[in-house]
Design a protein around this nucleic acid. Structure first.
Lengths: 217, 217
DNA sequence: TCGTTTTCTGACCGTATGGTCAAGGTCGAG
DNA sequence: CTCGACCTTGACCATACGGTCAGAAAACGA
């Protein structure tokens, strides 16, 4: 049946336009919220007529849903660092690095997600109840194992995860506030590095994570 | 000139209505965002005709601004715990307690603030540049003093403050996500207490804050 | 080249929104 | 009681929004 995506000019244009629209939508939804965003503004930012948006995405909700899904997948992907780590220093350290990097490179997406959750997750409630819950329980189990193995202090796994999310995403969601307190300038590369190190240092020390010390001697 | 607020029935009604409207507005703005909120919805929730809202607050922006100001003042007030503390254990500990309590009791306000900042702080940019910046520099100085006095490890004061804000406000702003991961039930009193303790334990340990030990012996 | 499918877009529509207004009601001071 | 100030509200208005549609244009397969 459906000839699967040949490399025709049409397919290229379609892909490119969808990319343009999604990028513009991510930015507009982040800056104005779902209610404040208008299809006209997204169209202008994408450089397309409004009617063309509705050709690719039937409704505003459909477009919004796609934007949110994109972000969620990026975050899930970043979590792989957690798994294949021998202990909290490597696992949580890499996770913080990854999430800080996402906050830096995808600040709009993070804001859209935050906005969605703050408004009661009307669009992605099912994700929260299935994928996110499963993911969370899985990592909580890993953390409990590390605790049992004496690799970190006995902290509540859920609250630790919340702290990781909160702290890393704060640099995207409240980026404007941070920028203002930084003299109106965005964080430089060095400042981002320092932020990462600060977060990692405090949290890893706070959970008593030891860099695989016991085995050395 | 202006006869200062006698206890007449009119003044009582005015105060009561303004209170009703502000409470409804805080909730609606938090749940729908500025763009998604409608004056009609706020009016319904306050139990007043829409035209009456415009009698007390000329425009949607004016009402919104009042809501944001309220929250900001609550937060500034909560920060007093920071000052009159001999060291980080008491100061930061009390600050975390206070901010967690605000997240619990004023979740809508916290969300409105978050939304405002995420959208680039169009309404309260001046607050960020003046009051908040001054406040931040003041606490950073306190933290540096504590570090100099050997009462905590040498961490970057700004990133520590960001971490405090992020972690505590997360329980309000992402309350829906936390509730979902908690089996769809809001955190109980015990769970809130455990959250507070978890946050305090990790952060205080993470910054190497010692409970005024040196002087005891 | 020709017919078909996909893409594009200006013009249009119904609705919902923020805000206005004028008329009527209520209260307090003297 | 009376008058002026304050409060209340249904009806109304202009605008802007999400979404539709018909027809033109472009790309494609044969």
């Amino acid at each position: 049946m459906a000839a699967p995506d040949r490399l025709t000019k049409r397919n290229a244009i379609r892909r490119e336009n969808e990319r343009l629209i999604l990028a513009a939508a991510e930015k507009v939804f982040a800056e104005a919220g779902f209610g404040g965003a208008t299809m006209q503004l997204i169209a202008d930012m994408a450089g397309l007529p409004k009617a063309n948006l509705h050709y690719y995405f039937a409704t505003k909700e459909e477009l919004y849903r796609k934007v949110v899904q994109q972000i969620f997948e990026i975050w899930l992907h970043a979590a792989e660092s957690f798994d294949k780590a021998p202990g909290p220093v490597e696992g949580i350290g890499a996770y913080i690095d990854a999430k800080m990097e996402i906050s830096r490179r995808h600040p709009f997406g993070s804001k859209v997600w935050a906005s969605e959750v703050m408004h009661g997750a009307p669009v992605i409630q099912d994700y929260l109840e299935t994928t996110l819950r499963d993911w969370t329980e899985g990592r909580a189990a890993v953390i409990r194992r590390w605790i049992a193995e004496g690799k970190m202090a006995p902290v509540d796994p859920h609250h630790l995860l919340y702290m990781l999310w909160a702290t890393t995403q704060h640099y995207a969601d409240f980026g404007h506030q941070i920028e203002t307190l930084n003299g109106g300038r965005p964080l430089s590369a060095q400042q981002w590095a320092r932020a990462k190190e600060s977060v990692k240092a405090i949290i890893l020390k706070g959970i008593g994570a030891t860099p695989a010390q016991a085995d050395i001697i």
